[in-house]
Computed example of a mutant assay.
Amino acid sequence: MESDRRRFLAFAGLSPLVLLGAGNALAQSAPCYSPEALTFSQKSRRRSLGFMDVAVDPKRRCGGCNFFTAGEGGCGNCQMLGGAPVTANSSCSSFAPRS
């Protein structure tokens, strides 16, 4: 019984720290755009280029692409997507590595 109480108190004491860490992770991964705000044309272009919000291959991330223009907080714009906003961690089939 005493060990259950200790385990509960230890967990309760750590919970705020865990939530604080999760809040920071969410703030760092905040989206650069709202998918609902994209026009039909923008959505179609993303589909045709195989756009993914999170790159499967870290070597082909938007942040390392010649068509990407960096902004603030890991966000930027893509020339292939008509200057539309993307994250540096996104990717598409038109990746062209920076020279």
Score class of each variant (00 low, 15 high):
Phe11Cys: 05
Val86Ile: 11
Val86Asn: 08
Val54Gly: 06
Leu49Glu: 09
Asp57Lys: 05
Phe67Ile: 05
Gln42Arg: 06
Val56Ile: 14
Glu36Cys: 10
Tyr33Glu: 09
Arg7Ala: 10
Ser34Tyr: 04
Glu36Ala: 08
Glu2Cys: 06
Val56Asp: 13
Ser99Pro: 13
Asp4Met: 13
Pro58Tyr: 06
Ser94Phe: 03
Cys65Thr: 12
Gly13His: 07
Gly64Thr: 15
Met52Phe: 12
Ala22Glu: 02
Gly63Asn: 07
Ser29Trp: 02
Asn66Arg: 14
Asp53Leu: 08
Ser44Lys: 10
Gly21Ile: 00
Ser29Asp: 01
Ser34Ile: 03
Leu26Glu: 04
Phe68Lys: 08
Phe40Leu: 15
Ser41Pro: 03
Gly13Met: 05
Ala37Thr: 08
Phe68Arg: 07
Arg5Tyr: 11
Pro31Glu: 12
Cys32Ser: 02
Ser34Glu: 00
Ser34Thr: 08
Thr39Met: 04
Asn77Thr: 13
Ala70Gly: 02
Asn24Cys: 10
Arg46Ala: 11
Cys62Thr: 09
Phe51Ala: 01
Val18Asp: 04
Gly73Leu: 03
Asp4Ser: 15
Cys32Lys: 04
Val56Leu: 12
Phe11Gly: 10
Phe95Tyr: 14
Gly50Ser: 02
Pro35Asn: 05
Met1Asp: 15
Leu19Arg: 05
Asn77Met: 01
Cys92Met: 10
Gly76Phe: 08
Phe95Leu: 06
Met1Tyr: 11
Ala27Cys: 05
Phe8Ser: 15
Leu14Ile: 11
Met52Asp: 15
Ala96Val: 14
Gln42Asn: 00
Asp4Glu: 15
Phe95Asn: 04
Gly64Glu: 15
Lys59Cys: 10
Cys65Leu: 10
Ser41Lys: 14
Gly76Val: 04
Arg6His: 04
Ser48Met: 11
Pro85Gly: 08
Phe40Cys: 12
Gly82Glu: 08
Gly71Gln: 00
Gly83His: 02
Arg98His: 00
Pro85Cys: 03
Gln79Cys: 09
Arg7Ser: 03
Phe67Ala: 15
Pro58Trp: 06
Asn89Glu: 12
Cys62Glu: 09
Gly83Leu: 05
Cys92Leu: 09
Arg5Lys: 12
Ala37Trp: 04
Gly64Tyr: 11
Val18Asn: 04
Asp57Ser: 06
Leu20Glu: 06
Phe95Ala: 01
Gly76Leu: 01
Gly82Trp: 11
Ala10Trp: 08
Gly64Asp: 15
Ala37Arg: 06
Leu14Ser: 12
Thr39Pro: 00
Ser3Leu: 13
Phe11Pro: 04
Arg7His: 06
Leu26Phe: 00
Phe11Gln: 09
Glu36Ser: 01
Ala30Trp: 09
Arg7Lys: 04
Glu72Ser: 07
Pro35Glu: 05
Gln28Ser: 01
Phe95Asp: 09
Phe68Gly: 03
Phe11Tyr: 09
